[in-house]
Structure formats: structure tokens, C-alpha cells
Design a binder for these strands. Sequence first.
DNA 1: CAGAGTGGTTCGTATCCCGTACTATTTAGT
DNA 2: ACTAAATAGTACGGGATACGAACCACTCTG
Lengths: 155, 155
Amino acid sequence: MDEVNVLPQQLDLTAGLIRSSALVQDILAAASAEHGLTPQQSQLMCVVGDTPSSMVRLGALLRIGKSSMTGLVHRAEQAGLIQRAPDPGDGRSTLIMLTAEGRRANSAFRATVGERIEHIIATLSAAERSNLTAALSRVALTNQAPQTWPTEQED
Amino acid sequence: MDEVNVLPQQLDLTAGLIRSSALVQDILAAASAEHGLTPQQSQLMCVVGDTPSSMVRLGALLRIGKSSMTGLVHRAEQAGLIQRAPDPGDGRSTLIMLTAEGRRANSAFRATVGERIEHIIATLSAAERSNLTAALSRVALTNQAPQTWPTEQED
DNA sequence: CAGAGTGGTTCGTATCCCGTACTATTTAGT
DNA sequence: ACTAAATAGTACGGGATACGAACCACTCTG
């Protein structure tokens, strides 16, 4: 390989984490836009998933206040992505769930993100992926990272 | 309130990348707030660094349009973080540079972020850090990740 | 030198988030 | 049971952010 570019060969760990974080955020924003969603709407739908949830619960997962939830949910409802139902067990609470349209958009969004993520790590070997997966899992899980992306086990 | 959230032992690579990305963004937002900055202001100062730059250049690094730059720069100027000077080589252009106050805030912000990043990876072994650094560097550099954090070589 | 291109600003629009105040419902304390 | 405290959600005002289109001023090109 000819070292002819002016870019640094390697970043330090902090820079690598921050820049790859920004790269991921850009992917999420672009994938959202391609499906007619705002980043917050796609994130909201991801945390709702198949579990009807109160606004307080969703706000905790998204780490935004309840007054911010009102508008976010309202706009998502206007967009036909989610619907509300009274909580049978608590007269104060409303349960948020995806509409058919919301499920469709959410699936499409997640598929697109999956592809893009796969693409940016395409040059990593199987061993590197394995190491990266283990390291990032531990970082995310031991630091209570926001659960903004679904897994099989959780939720 | 009995949220039965089973914590998984390990996330897949996509979830690990996305959640650790969100974690990093939270760190950046919190560190910004602790120094009286908005996330965009701290990011702006990081890309300015010690290199007086035009708004177009900064907009390209931040990946926002020039009309968005106007307000961002204006608010940062009002906050005493940056200052503008006419570009001696181009009458249309203004050069943005940090004020003394901006340099101080930027240094403090970066120090705080460094500590927090160090903290979340505290459980990784030296070998794991080395692998993580190499993998994230390659991901960031081969995918033109936004240069939102300074390095020695660049800029 | 005229026309095209570039750097920035302005304006109108929309999203997003926050803190405070308020209503309605539920829960806890006595 | 009944009142007081806690909780779920909304309303409102305000600030930061980002966009596109229209526009001005300056620079570069042919």
C-alpha cells in the first residue's frame, strides 16, 4: 500500500469512538430521512417495538422529559406512525403502540440501517468483528447506554 | 413499575455500534452542558481549533448548510466563544477563530470528554483497547466519518 | 468586462427539547 | 375513609437547530 494520503493512519481511541459515533448518527439520520422519518421518530418507533408503553417509560428510554414526549408523540401520531390507547390499568396513562404503517416504516428503517452498518464495517475480518462486538457490547452494557436499538432478549 | 428487562449478555455488532454511539453522544451533550455550551457550539469549537476557517469550510466539516452556519456562528459569537475577522485574501469570506474564552472553554470541554470516554472504557484490557482503537480508526477513516474531534496530524 | 460561481445573510418554516404550571388520577399516610 | 403526596400527561412560552429559497457582494473566467 502506498501511503499517499494526507489522512492520519490511525486515530486514538477517543477520536475513534467519537468519530465513529458521529458516523453512526449520520447513518441513522440518513436512513430516517429516506423513509420519511425524523431521527427522533425512528428512534421512538424502535423503542416502542411490539410493546405498548406509556409515555413515561418511552421518555425514560429516550432520555427526554415528559413535556418533550407530548409533542414527539403527537407528531408521530399525526404522521400515522403510532396510535394511543387508554391504559386499562391506570386512568392517567396512555399506551403508545405502532400502527401498521409504523411497523412497516420501522422495519424498513431498521433494514436500511442494518445494511449501512454492515457496509461501514465491511473491511473488518471475522476476528475483528468478533472483538469489536465484544468490546462495544461491554462498553454499552456496563455504562447503561440508551437502549435505542432493539435486541432479541430485551424489552 | 416492575419492569422486567432482561439484560442480554452481549449485543450484536449493529446494536453495539448504535448504542455505544448514543452513549458517546450523551457524553458529548453532558460535557457541553457542564461547560455552558450547546453540543453544536462545542463541536464548532473543536473543528475550528487553532485554524481560522471560513464558514463554508466549517459547514463542510460539520456537515450542515451555510444558512445553518450563520445562526450557529452568530450565537457562538454572542456567547463570546468565537470571533470573526475579514479574510485578507477574499473579500466575501470571514474567518472564524476562537476567542481566549473559546479556547479556554474548548480545552476544558475536551478534557472532560477525555475523562468520560476513558471512564466508559475503563474495563477494557490493553489488548482490547488496542483492537478497538484499530477497528474504530479504520471504520472512521475508511468511511469519511465527520472530523468532529481533533487529532495531531490533521487540520 | 459581462456572466458565472462562490461566500454569507436573511427569512420563513419545522422539529426538538426544556422548565414551569396545571389537570386528572392513583397511591400512601393517618 | 379521607386527605396529602406522588404520578401521567398536557399546555405554554422560549431557545437552539436545521433547511431551502431568495438575495447581495465579491471573485473568477472567458
